[in-house]
């Protein structure tokens, strides 16, 4: 019974998500864009590109040319190659952050909704505060004091985004808590945790999925902002970093335009995808 509940739910999810995909031009565009990025990210090591770390005295701040389609930065490194390599970090970090946010948010929100009472009151207050405080500034504080390795950054970004997922999870749990099938399972002896994670969550998860997709976009944007401030991990290549350099040598527009476009496209892709999912996965209201 437990296996089939989750499996059939996932299948339903996929089926519902794929429904009428043909008519949904925007969602489709988002999906295609995202897939292109994934492909690039995976295949970049195999492309014939300049070594993104290779410095070249001759090409310092070279504008775009046949040799360097996106130009070169202040160390003479090829920007085209750096932008393509940057895809890996952005995608990986965005997804990791969103997943962190999802798990933390889902757990906290579910417990708050399930147990109710005083615990719920405290948690809601907590959630509300996290939703409105300016996350980027908080992250600046964290990054500055604690450290900026890329995986930590992903984790921390996720840890600032969990609140909206928590709200959704909580609302869903509250709704489903009273439903017949949950009460039936409880009568059959299912414990709290089992009830929550095997019965309520698989059914209530839908709205959280679109939210999480949107959060990938948010995370990528946030990370770009942080690297732009010079707070990124210096050992990896991120788009924000390149732009940071562009700010220092202002007439090198290629240091701003290309990575900027990359960020915009990836964020756009996840936004389109996320909004499209939101429309589809919204529970159909009876007329």
């Amino acid at each position: 019974m437990r296996r089939s509940v989750s499996l059939s739910n996932t299948l339903t999810l996929v089926r519902v998500g794929m429904r009428d995909l043909r008519g949904d031009k925007w969602g489709l565009t988002g999906l295609c864009m995202m897939l292109s990025f994934v492909v690039i990210a995976l295949l970049v090591p195999y492309f014939p590109l300049y070594d993104p770390w290779e410095q070249s005295g001759a090409d310092v701040i070279a504008p775009p040319s046949w040799n360097h389609p996106f130009g070169a930065d202040i160390y003479g490194r090829d920007v085209f190659s750096r932008v393509l390599w940057g895809t890996r970090v952005s995608l990986g970090l965005g997804v990791l952050a969103a997943l962190t946010s999802f798990f933390v948010g889902a757990v906290i929100g579910s417990f708050a909704g399930y147990y109710g009472g005083f615990l719920d009151d405290i948690m809601t207050r907590f959630i509300d505060v996290f939703i409105i405080i300016p996350r980027v500034i908080l992250l600046i504080l964290v990054a500055a004091l604690i450290g900026t390795e890329v995986w930590y950054m992903a984790l921390f970004i996720g840890l600032t985004m969990w609140a909206s997922t928590a709200r959704i999870a909580r609302a869903q749990v509250i709704t489903f808590k009273e439903r017949g099938f949950v009460k039936a399972a409880a009568l059959l002896g299912a414990g709290d945790v089992r009830l929550l994670f095997l019965h309520i969550l698989p059914n209530g998860i839908y709205p959280a999925i679109s939210n999480t997709t949107l959060q990938v976009a948010d995370a990528i944007m946030t990370e770009a902002g942080l690297s732009f401030f010079g707070l990124g991990d210096k050992n990896v290549i991120t788009w924000g970093q390149i732009i940071n350099m562009g700010m220092l040598s202002i007439s090198s527009w290629w240091l701003v335009v290309f990575p900027g476009a990359a960020i915009a496209l990836m964020v756009l892709a996840f936004n389109l995808l996320g909004d499209s999912l939101e429309l589809r996965l919204k529970p159909r209201l009876l007329r």
Binding site: W26, A217, M221, A224, G225, F228, G240, I243, G246, M247, I250, S251, W253, V256, V257, P259, G260, I263, A264, L265, V267, L268, N271, L272
Partner: peptide
């Protein structure tokens, strides 16, 4: 609506730098 999406997806610092490059530089 699409314009709104695009503007929303451009990082604010990128847009600012672009404006600066075009109008000030």
């Amino acid at each position: 609506v699409f314009q709104a999406y695009i503007l929303f997806s451009i990082p604010i610092f990128v847009f600012g730098l672009l404006l600066m490059i075009i109008f000030a530089v």
